[in-house]
Amino acid sequence: MLDVSSLETLNSDHREIARLVYDTVLLLDSKDFSGWLHRCTDDFAYAVRSWSPELRAQITWLEHDRAGIENLVRHLPRHHTEPVLLTRHATVYRIEPDAERSEATAITALTIYQTQDDGGETSLFAVGRYYDRIIRTDDGWRLREREVELDTRSLGIGTQYPL
């Protein structure tokens, strides 16, 4: 049974982890990739996957280590991308720290809207979930792994941005 002090620590961890997840959403929405990666560890791993009923298998759409993600976002200005705004709506469903409270997993429901620069029309881009692995560092909780599991598989012309 947890004593009061432990319970307070646990609640504090939950708040800080939820805040970390929400911060990553805000930073991605504002295309502050440097700020986003600052919330990630040096051995950060990122993937976008989806279950395909057509192939009856899981498909990987994007999989990078930190260097790969840095390369991806660094090259964005050299590529043509659709002039749209991606807005993520996230709700952290579950946070589960390990026994030592040095590491935690988090499951977050994710909805991404797409707003056209020309005219401002908004449509649904994708729904899915973040499956995050988060570790405690000297600088606080940081994201070590993020797996974006998409329900949506028909993504129009797609995107070059991390979700």
């Binding site: 043509h80 659709e82 995107t159």
Partner: peptide, 12 residues
Amino acid sequence: GPFGRNLHEDLL
């Protein structure tokens, strides 16, 4: 793929 460097540009 939907997040690839070229396909998005072709589709755009």
